[in-house]
């Protein structure tokens, strides 16, 4: 996974969701992630309802299905945190792991399965959000959702210079690799693990000094052009009728799903 290939999460397309205001999409994705947490373990019908919601989002985005599925695997490593519950949650034993003698309970399996399903569905919707919204539109959306201006401005600058600083970091890594850190076939060379960590530390320190000095130059250049501390975002767009429609449908659907899941 490479963070330096920024913007690649955005997948150009023509679906309806592409034309919906980023604010609406962010609110729906966050609301969905919260809404699905209220579902009790093992309430499969409720999960099916949330799944239908995700399917609707994927459908209206017209994103390639394989792309959405492939990107949704990102949270999988974290499953290790929930996995032991299969064996520790008391309940009817379904099977016992040979040699180790761990007993898997029905309740444990249902519980872990529900956690995985919640996580997967929420990640799927987040994948749809980031795949059909340009990163800069996401950041502008945050600003228009009344995020404090200082924070929105900071995120804006961070995104603007992510490429620049990232490239600089990448050059440092390439220079190091050329000199010492990795041998052929991914082997290591040049000192112990701690030595290698310290070398990386020097590189991080160097990157910090360069970044700070760059930020000073940027600030001076901005001051000379009349910057007064307010980051201005252009194109203040009002929500169109389509945006309100999508928001209304999503809120009603999520509200209904929450009520169905809990009552």
């Amino acid at each position: 996974m490479s963070y330096f290939a920024l913007g690649e999460r955005y997948q150009h397309g023509q679906g309806l969701l592409y034309r919906v205001d980023p604010r609406v999409k962010i609110v729906i994705a966050v609301a969905f992630a919260f809404a699905i947490t209220v579902v009790h373990a093992g309430h499969w019908q409720a999960f099916a309802g949330f799944g239908a919601f995700v399917a609707l989002a994927v459908g209206t985005s017209r994103l390639p299905l394989w792309l959405v599925l492939r990107r949704s695997l990102i949270a999988l490593p974290f499953a290790a945190a929930a996995f032991p519950l299969i064996f520790t949650k008391p309940g009817d034993t379904i099977f016992t792991v040979p040699l180790l003698g761990w007993a898997a309970s029905h309740e444990g399996l249902v519980h872990v399965g529900s956690i995985m399903l919640k996580s997967w569905l929420a990640v799927l919707l987040a994948v749809v959000l980031t795949s059909c919204t340009r990163p800069l539109d996401l950041i502008r959306g945050l600003e228009r959702l009344r995020l404090p201006r200082v924070l929105a401005g900071t995120i804006f600058f961070m995104y603007r210079y992510l490429h620049v600083i990232g490239e600089e970091g990448h050059r440092l890594m390439r220079a190091r690799d050329a000199r010492s850190a990795s041998g052929p076939d991914g082997g290591k060379s040049g000192g112990s693990v701690l030595w290698r960590a310290r070398v990386l530390g020097s590189m991080v320190g160097s990157l910090f000094v360069r970044s700070l000095e760059r930020s000073e130059r940027i600030y001076a250049a901005m001051q000379s052009r009349g910057y007064d501390g307010t980051v201005r975002f252009s194109n203040e767009r009002r929500l169109a009728r389509r945006d309100w429609g999508v928001l209304l449908v999503a809120v009603l659907a999520l509200g209904g799903l929450i009520i169905y899941a809990r009552f």
Binding site: F156, M158, R160, G229
Partner: peptide
């Protein structure tokens, strides 16, 4: 200078 300075350091 908050936004430009903090933004570049966040990128760092």
């Amino acid at each position: 200078s908050t936004a430009p300075l903090m933004g570049v350091l966040a990128a760092f």
